[in-house]
Write a protein that binds this DNA or RNA. Structure first.
Lengths: 218, 218
DNA sequence: GAGACAAGTAAACGATCGTTGACATAGGTA
DNA sequence: TACCTATGTCAACGATCGTTTACTTGTCTC
């Protein structure tokens, strides 16, 4: 057989992310742009960069495919916009100087395990899923490194050296732990981790993260 | 612009996995099959299922594309063969009983950071990447849960309760850390983690893993 | 209300994907 | 030697991808 499935049929295949809120009532380019980024982030996070098609994204957002090229230049540009928005939302929380390592850790845990917003963990997945696309991966890599520096800076608030390489490494280990955790919980859905409550996770995670990030601890 | 890049040119784009060893001298279907699985595993692990093309795999293995359909039915069939082989190779090592937590940790570190065989970490990536295929993901999930139980049993060798759920959770956190680490090091290639030496990683990782797995420690 | 410009759509293009059927060739068998 | 089957190659097919061009439609200003 060939690649089958008519192009028209392909769009209703799989769960169609109906973009409930953020209805585009009138003609507003900004609203449309946000709707596209919103739809794209969910697709990219859950299905990966290469597997998501611009036609799916446009259908989720309820607009024509051509608008992606018009507003973001290309699929790659839309992906970069998604990453930038994720960083922007992650930034104020990591940038805000913490008064203690405990506060940094608490902030991380809030994002990953408590997850007040259901889309929060998906944003992290966006940082982990490699695409196979060379430029998209470069964007991802650069974003992760920026995130690392901010986390290390926040953790080393009381360290004498501002950003030693061992600290950067430990910060990235913390990130690796959190990313792997989200991956196993939401994508692979391995048990009992996937259905574990936040209470069960916070205590051991706190201890581990303190070992990695606390520069004062022996 | 369009999708650019001539089809003939595309094949030498990116790092071409020259399949050094396992040269197919004569005409041997078994040897060819193994060469294909070998090349496919590296591509699938580093670039993901969707981003890997059968033409790349065939080029890596040094054979014609048509043989993939002939020997494995389809790209999906080849992926399933890769998974089966990975499970077969991972099983005996996790099944072997460890005598102490330190030994378990040492074993984990050997697999992930020291990596005597360059393909070892890539096998782990195969367990993490979702394919979109329902059956493949089920196999993946079941394998991870089995791996968790064996790791928890090995870690709790001196604990009074054999396999408490908190221990299972901590074991899966350890797995999450290792998988995230391999992901960031080999797929995303984020710095400085990707180019860090084994020496730089073992010390902090040992401490973290002991916190997670050592049931005697306070 | 008429025009103008932005916002959105429809249809198509070229490229690449996975797959296939017809053909070539090596190596063992009669 | 002549043949025959397993093994491998080649060229093409249909589908789908991201992108672009030409067009339509809404909305605001004068």
């Amino acid at each position: 057989m060939g690649n089958q499935v008519q192009e028209s049929k392909a769009l209703d295949g799989g769960a169609t992310f109906a973009d409930d809120e953020l209805v585009r009532s009138g003609r507003d380019a900004d609203v449309t742009r946000r709707a596209l980024v919103r739809a794209a982030r969910r697709r990219f996070a859950t299905e990966g960069y290469r597997a998501t098609t611009v036609r799916h994204i446009a259908a989720d957002a309820g607009v024509n495919v051509a608008l992606i090229s018009r507003y973001f230049g290309s699929k790659e540009g839309l992906f970069e916009a998604c990453m930038n928005r994720t960083v922007d939302e992650l930034d104020p929380q990591t940038r805000a100087r913490a008064s203690s390592v405990d506060e940094v850790i608490a902030r991380l845990l809030t994002h990953v395990v408590e997850a007040p917003n259901a889309d929060d963990p998906l944003q992290l997945l966006l940082l982990l899923r490699s695409s196979g696309d060379e430029n998209a991966d470069a964007i991802r890599r650069r974003t992760l490194e920026r995130f690392t520096e901010q986390l290390a800076a926040a953790a080393g608030w009381n360290a004498d050296v501002p950003a030693s390489q061992p600290l950067l490494l430990r910060a990235q280990m913390a990130i690796a732990l959190m990313l792997g955790l989200v991956m196993l919980r939401t994508a692979t859905e391995v048990q009992p981790l996937a259905s574990a409550s936040a209470d069960q996770l916070t205590e051991p995670l706190e201890r581990v993260l303190r070992v990695l990030l606390d520069t004062t601890e022996k």
